[in-house]
Design a protein around this nucleic acid. Structure first.
Lengths: 259, 259
DNA sequence: CGTGGACATC
DNA sequence: GATGTCCACG
């Protein structure tokens, strides 16, 4: 039996909204440690990996592993039925046909329950190894979001060049080119505003802006994004959940024609 | 001669917007006590009953009874020509071909006049008797609106069960089910947030969400909705106008096949 | 944070 | 034309 209670429905809402535009169906794998999701986007390019740790719940209990095959669009509609600050509880039996979502108003005695029919969803669970990256960037998630939104107007690709003392995002299109250069910067008063670059080796990589646009939908989940880059390796874009857990996106860079 | 002046054009705008989606044509019956409208929606299922009391006007005069046959879509377009906070005056002769709508800006000396051609509209005026209901619910109109919008995602019918200490709204569809349970609740500081249930007899009734969706368009007219229910009897959904009057909707419950 | 209006989309 | 989403306001 699974019983997971969020102190604020808005957390689950943000999580689901962050991935539902690129993943339609996915399995929620519930274990005693929390809930994980692994899925590829519909074009099978972007890999999404979510962990909602046990600590992100105000109450959590999962006696044995349970898989919930969820249609995220329907689930999203259900989540919108609660208010952001309601308690939200997920309930499922050990071999469930349905998952129950329960909202409780913190003041009034209002309780809403929604049952969602589950689906059988095929999916291999990939073991993703921790690895060493050439460059690791930490920056405000909103700033990364704006860069992606701005440069998307110019072309379909975003080039990221990390050197010892700067990160350059740039895009070249028919109508013009654009670039944003960031220097590492530490804001004592507002640490979340800091830009941190950890450089093992310089990198020069290009990504599809279509996928980056999906990634930045998670911006509201965390004030900071961590971008880990290495040559010819899927990049990792990570949003850490304050309450415990993460939403990670893996995206392979575009390769030059001669590779 | 009719001369009715609203202190705020927005009041008439809200009223017309509240009913124009389900009623295309209707008679405005003007008497010395104010203006009443009675109409059925286009599918002849929902009965709409409006009273704009004399007190809702800042100035009101109606020497003898006048009937204004109005096309609400055209009228709505005219009303949108004023600003919300303008004075709005309705003018009509005793046997009018037209009704005049006059907007006056409160500060500027701007006056706009629009004349709308009237129509001959057949309609029996039903005498609706006050009656005793089994259950009477008072709740925030916005909360009722949200319940209808949320449960409409699931199916076409809304079931309402009122018992001694709770009101349960529920809906069952193919992809899942949903329910909202409210307990009576008194908010001293914000009385409009209170939920009040007056129970003579428990009820268990089902309504078409299509019609309820039309009803909740009146939400902005009043902070509170009163729902009066009785077995095998049209339910009454009432929005009271602060300034005096009401907008009432009568909707018959769905009957079980075996009735 | 919730509400209402405006805009863009289907 | 109607709906859903976004943004600004209270």
């Amino acid at each position: 039996m699974l019983e997971g209670k969020f102190d604020e429905a808005s957390l689950l809402k943000k999580i689901v909204d962050s991935i539902k535009d690129c993943v339609k169906l996915c399995n929620f794998n519930c274990t005693e440690h929390g809930i994980t999701v692994q899925a590829v986007d519909d074009s099978r390019v972007l890999l999404v990996s979510l962990l909602v740790g046990q600590s992100a719940f105000s109450e959590y209990r999962c006696d044995r592993d349970i898989t919930l095959g969820i249609d995220l669009e329907s689930f999203s509609k259900i989540i919108k039925c609660g208010n952001n600050e309601d308690y939200l509880t997920l309930l499922a039996e050990d071999s469930p046909d349905n998952v129950m979502t329960i909202f409780e108003d913190k003041k009034k005695e209002r309780v809403s329950e929604y049952s969602l029919k589950l689906m059988d969803i095929d999916s291999e669970f990939l073991k993703i190894d921790d690895m060493d990256y050439d460059s690791v960037i930490n920056m405000p998630s909103g700033e990364f979001s704006k860069i992606v939104r701005d440069l998307k107007n110019l072309s379909e690709s975003l080039n990221i060049i990390v050197t010892k003392d700067s990160v350059k995002f740039s895009s070249e299109g028919e109508n013009g080119t654009g670039s944003v250069v960031l220097k590492p910067y530490t804001d004592m008063d507002h640490p979340e505003e800091s830009i941190n670059v950890n450089l093992e080796n310089p990198v020069d990589l290009t990504f599809g802006l279509k996928y980056l646009s999906d990634i930045i939908k998670a911006t509201s989940l965390a004030g900071t994004i961590t971008i880990k880059l290495a040559d010819k390796t899927p990049a990792l874009f990570e949003y850490k959940l304050d309450a415990g857990g993460y939403l990670r996106f893996y995206l392979a860079p575009k390769f030059d024609e001669d590779d």
